[in-house]
Design a protein around this nucleic acid. Structure first.
Length: 463
DNA sequence: ATGTAC
């Protein structure tokens, strides 16, 4: 039988080669003659599971099972928050992601915008599989807020003290590292779990305590609670707080690209267009390696913030009295709808019932400490920020520091350094975004930025 | 978001 005849019998194109190999093998072993071949193929197509232990047709049967698992006529339905602010391209990406054969549920947060593979602000649950690009390049990118034992008025009256703490307590820039690595227990963890984490360990060590670039920042601001929060152990009032946004730096990016390349190479031909949505079966060796490396990057990113907060608060001469932190680029094993699934949150804040998190706005707009409501349709998630209103390039064209200076001054925000593509006007209105996700999180406290440091893009924030 | 360069 040739390939065309096999396909006429119902053998998918992707499985024709396995069918021919099986037939040749069976005939050469004289267990099947050419007359029986057609019937045999039909039997396997009817119930491939029954042939998984067959001496000759097992591989063909497995190929049929795998192929059927890949077929999905319609993308999984997903709910969208803040519909009006989300562009069509993000929806296209989300539909693509929800068409991946391992996808079981999804949701789109109100700050969603286009990203690699899954949109940023995308939540995707998969069955026993993980998609490196649905976690994101900056694995375990996260927020950390520390409340300090300093009187609120000091932030204005002792500006230089705060400025020096921010400037001395971390470093910005692509590839930025310390010559003398900072100490942290995370470097005692086993980095030899995968080749890439082993190779990147020294670099990661030198990058401990750094902030990277893009939308990453460290800032001082005023945290306002309108009522006491028992969990935070803070009374109503105003506090000085340190807020940072950073991730797993070069090491995390290397883990993402390494394992997405492995996943893409393993994609069946008919799914090659999925590209950066390539998944890894969690039972596979590569899947287990990615999972272990991703979790190490989670610990590393948390340690990175630890070091930043340790250094900044030490330079400031202050103690940390309370805090909130969370990843927003990560995947978790969770139970939804009674089934264990892998939930990817890429630029989305975990918001299970009662779970605390931090959602930043922009350099001149408030961040919010939130408590999740465990909304099932969002898979227990919320936005990770206000979301961009325009691309970085467009923002650089449209805004200059001169143009935003008044706005920043009026709001009492002092920017030590930043890129013009990060000005407030490049972002959506965080208050509107919070309104759009009022069914996802409760607001616990408001953080108003006062002194901000981001990666300098060469254009002067002071001018 | 990162950092390298078939």
């Amino acid at each position: 039988m040739n390939g065309r005849q096999l396909q006429k019998l119902g053998v998918p194109e992707e499985c024709v080669r396995e069918a021919i190999t099986a037939i040749q093998f069976a005939i050469s072993s004289r267990t099947t003659d050419s007359k029986q071949v057609k019937a045999k193929i039909k039997e396997v197509l009817d119930a491939p599971e029954a042939f998984l232990d067959d001496d000759y047709f097992a591989k063909f049967a497995q190929a049929i099972i795998d192929d059927r698992n890949f077929v999905r006529a319609e993308p999984v339905a997903y709910e969208t928050w803040g519909k009006s602010g989300i562009d069509q391209e993000s929806h296209f990406q989300m539909r693509q992601a929800c068409s991946v054969p391992v996808a079981v549920a999804g949701a789109l947060m109100p700050d969603a915008h286009v990203g690699y593979g899954l949109p940023i602000g995308g939540v995707l649950a998969c069955d026993n599989a993980v998609i490196p690009y649905a976690v994101g390049v900056d694995i375990a990118c996260r927020m950390k807020l520390s409340v300090l034992d300093i009187a609120a008025d000091a932030i204005d009256s002792q500006f230089n003290r705060f400025k020096e703490a921010l400037e001395g307590g971390t470093r910005f820039g692509v590839g930025k590292e310390y010559q003398k690595p900072q100490a942290h227990a995370v470097m005692d963890a086993d980095w030899s779990i995968t080749r890439i984490t082993r190779e990147k360990k020294d670099r990661a060590w030198k990058q401990l305590g750094t902030s990277g670039s893009g939308n990453h920042f460290v800032e001082f601001g005023l945290l306002t609670l309108t009522e006491r929060d028992e969990e935070l152990n803070l009374d109503a009032g105003q506090y000085v707080a340190l807020l940072s946004h950073s991730g797993s730096r070069g090491a995390g990016a290397a883990v993402c690209s390494t394992y997405s390349a492995i996943a893409q190479a393993a994609l069946p031909k008919k799914y090659e267009d999925l590209g950066r949505l390539a998944w890894l079966d969690l039972e596979s060796e590569a899947g287990q390696e990615y999972w272990a490396a991703m979790n190490l990057m989670g610990d590393y990113a948390a340690a990175n913030h630890d070091v930043i907060h340790r250094q900044v608060s030490k330079l400031l001469g202050s103690q940390i009295i309370a805090g909130v932190e969370n990843h927003h680029n990560f995947a978790w094993k969770e139970t939804h709808g009674g089934k264990e699934v892998i939930v990817h949150r890429k630029g989305a804040t975990p918001a299970a019932a009662g779970e605390l998190g931090v959602i930043p706005g922009s350099m001149a707009d408030p961040a919010f400490v939130v408590r999740g409501k465990g909304n099932a349709a969002s898979l227990g998630s919320a936005s990770h920020g206000a979301g961009r209103q325009m691309s970085r390039t467009k923002a650089r064209d449209k805004f200059s520091w001169k143009a935003v200076k008044n706005d920043l001054e009026k709001k009492g925000v002092r920017v030590l350094s930043a890129g013009a593509d990060e000005v407030p006007g490049a972002y959506k209105d965080i208050r509107q975004v919070m309104n759009e996700q009022a069914d996802l999180v409760d607001i616990v406290a408001r953080f108003d930025p006062r002194i901000v440091k981001m990666c300098d893009d060469g254009s002067k924030a002071e001018d």
